[in-house]
């Protein structure tokens, strides 16, 4: 196993650990705001994965921005041989905005939840719901 494989394995293990930690917080932690924060962390980890998919482990490597405004064929060939893939970043920007709108809506709903139940702890909310059902 060469240095490249060890590095790739390390990066991938870190990403899996981050995703697993975010999932743990999302499922096991009772507070709704912490669940929302863990959800954003999970989404951010997926952005890192997308960036890794588009990246090229070589040198020199450049971003997808053309510096020449009237490129000829030689410039284009060199640019394509150096540049990273532009498609994953595009999907990532879409994902950032969609994730942001989801988070805004979730935070508003969480505040509404607090107004109705007086707590953001999902275990307490479940108990209150059970009591309400028992009274009826």
């Amino acid at each position: 196993m060469g240095v490249g494989e060890v590095f790739w394995l390390y990066v991938w293990l870190i990403i899996m650990a981050n995703a697993g930690m975010a999932l743990y917080g999302l499922i096991m932690r009772p507070n709704v705001l912490k669940k929302i924060a863990c959800l954003t962390v999970l989404a951010d980890t997926s952005f890192i994965v997308l960036a890794l998919i588009g990246y090229r482990f070589k040198y020199p490597v450049s971003p997808y921005v053309m510096t020449s405004w009237a490129p000829d064929n030689a410039t284009l060939t060199r640019f394509i041989s150096e540049s990273v893939d532009p498609l994953p970043p595009t999907l990532t920007i879409t994902a950032v905005v969609i994730n942001l709108s989801i988070t805004i809506l979730l935070v508003f709903l969480a505040i509404r939840l607090y107004e109705v139940y007086g707590t953001l702890d999902v275990k307490k909310i479940a108990m209150i719901k059970k009591e309400l059902r028992g009274e009826q």
């Binding site: 951010d44 952005f47 890192i48 960036a51 890794l52 588009g54 990246y55 490597v61 450049s62 971003p63 997808y64 921005v65 990273v84 994953p88 970043p89 990532t92 920007i93 950032v96 905005v97």
Partner: peptide
């Protein structure tokens, strides 16, 4: 470091 400047600015 992964060379996605657009995503960095938005993120």
């Amino acid at each position: 470091i992964l060379l996605v400047p657009d995503v960095v600015l938005a993120y």
